Simulated scan of single mutants.
Amino acid sequence: MFSLERRENLRAYLTGLKPYIVLSTIVFALSIAVGYITYGIYPEYAMQSISGLEELVEMLEGLSLLEIMLLIFINNTIAMFIAILFGIVLGIVPLLVLVLNGFIIGTIVRLLLVENGLAFIVAGLVPHGIIEIPLLLLSTSIGMKIGYEVLLALAGKPSDIKNEFIKGMKFFFYWMVPLIFVAALIETFITPVIMYLVAGT
């Protein structure tokens, strides 16, 4: 059981992140919409933007399930860590992470919707995405909050960059990394099974 003090500290920290979580959610949703629409209008451009994913898929084909799971875990951990770490650059990097991921998801959703239908998309995204997407939004929110503290300092206003950075890193390693691992497990071992059942092949 977590102590009352720890629970209160966690609640207070998440409450302080609320404005940034809202902003992250809006940016992420808009980026998904842009990716979805772009594929409909300029499919060639949209496909070029996700061309790197084909190389990743080819690389994964030669790996064991355990290796795939570890690769997904490491990749997602690094991406979210970068979103927090480089939030110090005025919060710009977290926004770029959101836009890039949202655009890619929007493009893939439009592509799969045409080829496989809505049920296949839900099966491919929801099992692990229900954990992974909130974690992405949390990591970018933490990065943006750190960036805001930097902006306050540059404007000559009271700020506490060091304390905010430490709190963000503690939250990342204590709470987020274990959940990133769980999401990687689900994405590797459960999501493909559900997609197979939905596809019926």
Rank of each mutant, 00 (worst) to 15 (best):
I26S: 11
L17D: 02
Y196C: 00
G143W: 05
P192E: 00
L60K: 09
L66H: 06
F171H: 06
F28W: 07
S141K: 03
M195F: 00
L56A: 12
A33E: 06
F73M: 14
M69I: 08
S51R: 12
F120P: 00
P192T: 01
M69Y: 04
P19D: 03
P158V: 05
P127Y: 01
N75S: 15
H128L: 06
E187R: 04
L125R: 03
G52C: 07
A29T: 15
N101F: 08
E164Y: 04
I82T: 11
V150A: 08
L85S: 12
M195H: 00
F120L: 01
T77E: 10
G143A: 10
M69V: 06
P134L: 03
H128D: 08
T188W: 00
R7L: 15
I180H: 00
Y45Q: 14
S64C: 06
M59P: 02
R110L: 05
N101S: 13
E164M: 10
K18A: 15
I190S: 02
L111M: 15
R110K: 13
I88V: 14
I82G: 03
G200V: 00
I68M: 08
P94R: 05
F173I: 13
G156F: 05
L71E: 11
I180Q: 01
H128R: 10
R7S: 13
K145T: 06
I32F: 09
Q48F: 07
P178F: 02
I92F: 11
V198P: 00
A199I: 01
I186D: 00
L137P: 00
L135I: 10
W175N: 13
S139K: 04
L138N: 02
L71F: 08
T15C: 11
I50W: 05
Y13T: 07
E67S: 14
V93R: 02
A33I: 12
A79P: 07
G168V: 04
E44P: 04
T15I: 12
